[in-house]
Nucleic acid binder design. Structure first.
Length: 574
DNA sequence: TCGTCATGCGCG
DNA sequence: AAAGCGCGCATGACGA
C-alpha cells in the first residue's frame, strides 16, 4: 500500500482503530454515513506509520476504545491526531444521560475503572490503565454503532457537541502529558531552601521545621511534643490548656496561646516538605518537565481529575518554579468567576448576566442592589451554588432570589430533584449518577412505620447532602463543558502556528516545538510558546474563550472575561 | 506487616 | 471546625 490508497476511492471520513485479540491492529475505514468501506491490518511496529499516513492524507475521525490507552505511544512516535472519538468516555456520557428517553445500553465491558498504576505505559501495552479490555474491531464497531444510534435519537446537537468536546479533551490531555509542564529544578530548590533551610541529609527534618518544633515544645512545656500526629498533638494541646476539638488550622487560629503561631508556621512548612519537597522533585520532575497524568472524565461532573504528583494541587507559592524554556514564554490565562457566569447564562437570567458585565462579577452583584459589599456578594453567590443554609452565607442567599430569580430557580430546582433522589443534567447533557444503595436504604428506613426520629434525621440529612451535590453538579458540570470547549478551541487555533525555528529539545514530541498547551486546571490554562508568538497565542486564547461562550450559549449575551498575562514563569511576581 | 480509614491541607 | 461543592495525596491510627 502507499500513495495508491488515495486513488483507490473516497478517503475515509472515520477510521476505527482496534487492537486485535492477537498481536496486531485493525483499521476499519468508514464513510461519512458510518458504512464500512475497507479494512486493513497492521502489525505492532507498523501501526503508528499507518495512522500517520491516513492522518496526513485525510485527517479522519479516529474511533478508538480509549485515547488514554492508544494515544501516548502514538505521540511518542511523533504522530498527532486531529480528531477522535473516545468510546470509553462517550459510553459513560451516553449511558447516563437524561437527555435521551432511552439512553445507550450499559455494557460492563465499557465500564471505566480508575487506574491503579499511574506508571508510564509501555509502547501499546495493555493493562496499565486498569481498564477492562473488550477485544477486536467488531466489538468496537458494535459499540460505535450503538453510540451513533443513541446520538441520532437526541433531540438536538448538544450531546454530539459534548461527545466531541470530551474526545478532544482527551487528545489535549495526552498531548499535555507528553509535552509536560516546564519545571525549573533550581528555582524549586531555591524556594525550598529559602523556606525550609538546606536540604536535610539522610531524610531528617529540615532545620527551619526542627526549630519551630522545638519552640512549640518549649512553649507547651512538652519538649517531645508529637507534632506530626494529630491525635497525640491534640492530647498534648489539651494538657497545655488549649481546649480545641481538632488540630486543624482554622480552629487553632482562634486560640490565644503563644505556641499557636509557631505551630501553624510548622504545619505550613511541613505541608510544603511532605507534599512538594525534595522527594517530590526527584520523583516527578524529569528533564525539566513535570508530567501530570490527566484523568479526563475522572470526576462525575465532567471535571478532570489527575493522578500522580498532585498535579491539580500545585501550591501557588511554588508556581514560580514553572519556567518557560529559553526563548519561550507562557501565556497564562484564567477565567474570573467562571461558575456564576455559567449559571447566569445557562439559566438565561438576564439580570445576573448584566451583573456579570465587567471583570468582577461580585462588584456587579453589589451594583444590582442585592447586597452591600463585595465580600457579601461573594459569600452569597458561593452559598447559592454550594447550598449554604447557615451562617453568613446562608443568611445572604435569599437576597439573591429576589434579584436573580431565574438563576436561583435553576439551582434550587436541581437541589430539590437531588433531595428527591432524581437525576439532574448539565447544559450539554451530562447527567448526575443515581443515588447509591445506602442512600436509598436510608430513605426507605425513614419511611417505615416503626422508623425512629434518628432514622428520619439521618435520612433528611443524607437527602440534603445529595441536594447540595446536584445543586452544584449542574453549575460545576456546565462550567467544565465551557472549559472543554475553550481547550478544544485553543488547541485548534494553536495547531496552525508554525514550528519554532530552533527545536527546544530535538528529541521532544513534534508539537512541543510549536506553541502548545502545557497545563490546564478547571478554569485556567498555560500555553507554552516561542517568545515571538506570544501576542498571537494570547489572542488565540482570548478568541477561543469567545468561541466557547457562543458555542455553549448561542444567542445569549454573557461576558466571560479572562485574566491573561504573558510571562516567563507562572509565579505571581516579576 | 499489610490494607483500610480518618485527618488535614493543597487546588479549583 | 470553616459555612457550602468537587478533587489528590501524605500521614498516622487501627484492625487483621
Amino acid at each position: 500500500m502507499g500513495e495508491a490508497d488515495a486513488a483507490a476511492g473516497v478517503p475515509p471520513a472515520q477510521i476505527l482503530l482496534a487492537r486485535d485479540p492477537g498481536a496486531g491492529w485493525t483499521l476499519v475505514h468508514l464513510d461519512a454515513t458510518g458504512a464500512e468501506t475497507r479494512r486493513e491490518t497492521a502489525s505492532e511496529p507498523d501501526v503508528a506509520g499507518r495512522v500517520a499516513y491516513w492522518e496526513r492524507l485525510c485527517a479522519p475521525r479516529w474511533v478508538v476504545r480509549s485515547l488514554r490507552e492508544i494515544y501516548p505511544p502514538l505521540l511518542a512516535e511523533g504522530v498527532r491526531l486531529r480528531r477522535a472519538h473516545d468510546l470509553l468516555l462517550c459510553h459513560a456520557i451516553l449511558r447516563d444521560t437524561a437527555l435521551l428517553p432511552r439512553p445507550l445500553t450499559a455494557s460492563s465491558a465499557w465500564r471505566r475503572v480508575d487506574p491503579v498504576d499511574p506508571a508510564p505505559q509501555a509502547l501499546f501495552e495493555l493493562g496499565s490503565t486498569g481498564e477492562t479490555a473488550p477485544a477486536g474491531a467488531d466489538h468496537l464497531l458494535a459499540q460505535w454503532g450503538a453510540q451513533l444510534e443513541a446520538l441520532s435519537r437526541a433531540p438536538d446537537a448538544r450531546l454530539d457537541l459534548l461527545c466531541r468536546a470530551e474526545s478532544t479533551g482527551a487528545l489535549v490531555a495526552e498531548e499535555m502529558t507528553a509535552a509536560g509542564l516546564p519545571w525549573d529544578r533550581a528555582a524549586h530548590e531555591r524556594i525550598l531552601e529559602e523556606t525550609l533551610g538546606p536540604r536535610p541529609v539522610a531524610g531528617g527534618r529540615p532545620v527551619r521545621m526542627a526549630e519551630l518544633a522545638q519552640r512549640v515544645g518549649d512553649l507547651l512545656g512538652d519538649p517531645e511534643v508529637p507534632i506530626d500526629s494529630p491525635p497525640r498533638l491534640l492530647r498534648a494541646l489539651h494538657r497545655a490548656g488549649i481546649l480545641v476539638e481538632s488540630t486543624s488550622r482554622w480552629e487553632l487560629a482562634s486560640e490565644e496561646h503563644p505556641a499557636i503561631e509557631p505551630l501553624l508556621a510548622y504545619k505550613k512548612l511541613a505541608r510544603l516538605h511532605t507534599a512538594n519537597g525534595w522527594t517530590w522533585l526527584r520523583e516527578w520532575v524529569r528533564e525539566g518537565r513535570f508530567r501530570p497524568v490527566y484523568l479526563t472524565g475522572g470526576v462525575v461532573t465532567g471535571r478532570w481529575a489527575s493522578s500522580g504528583g498532585g498535579a491539580l494541587q500545585i501550591p501557588r507559592g511554588l508556581r514560580a518554579a514553572v519556567r518557560a524554556d529559553e526563548g519561550w514564554v507562557f501565556v497564562l490565562a484564567d477565567v474570573a468567576q467562571l461558575e456564576p457566569r455559567v449559571l447566569a447564562a445557562m439559566s438565561q437570567d438576564r439580570s445576573m448576566a448584566d451583573a456579570a458585565q465587567g471583570a468582577d462579577l461580585y462588584e456587579g452583584v453589589v451594583r444590582s442592589g442585592a447586597v452591600a459589599t463585595r465580600e457579601e456578594a461573594k459569600y452569597a453567590v458561593l452559598g447559592a451554588m454550594y447550598g449554604s443554609t447557615t451562617g453568613e452565607s446562608g443568611r445572604l442567599v435569599p437576597r439573591l432570589r429576589k434579584v436573580f430569580p431565574r438563576a436561583m430557580a435553576l439551582v434550587d430546582d436541581a437541589a430539590r430533584i437531588g433531595e428527591d433522589g432524581g437525576v439532574v443534567s448539565t447544559l450539554l447533557g451530562r447527567s448526575s449518577p443515581l443515588p447509591d444503595a445506602g442512600w436509598r436504604a436510608a430513605q426507605s428506613r425513614a419511611s417505615d412505620v416503626d422508623a425512629g426520629g434518628a432514622d428520619e434525621r439521618r435520612a433528611r440529612s443524607r437527602a440534603r447532602d445529595r441536594g447540595r451535590f446536584t445543586r452544584n453538579f449542574v453549575v460545576q458540570g456546565t462550567a467544565a463543558e465551557w472549559s472543554l470547549l475553550w481547550l478544544a478551541e485553543i488547541r485548534h487555533r494553536l495547531s496552525s502556528f508554525p514550528a519554532a525555528e530552533v527545536p527546544v529539545r530535538a528529541s521532544g514530541p513534534v508539537f512541543e516545538r510549536a506553541a502548545h498547551l502545557a497545563f490546564f486546571l478547571h478554569d485556567e490554562v498555560i500555553v507554552h510558546c516561542p517568545q515571538e508568538q506570544a501576542e498571537e497565542a494570547a489572542e488565540a486564547v482570548r478568541a477561543a474563550a469567545t468561541a466557547a461562550t457562543s458555542r455553549l450559549f448561542p444567542g445569549f449575551e454573557i461576558e466571560v472575561p479572562l485574566d491573561l498575562r504573558i510571562a516567563e514563569h507562572a509565579g505571581k511576581g516579576p
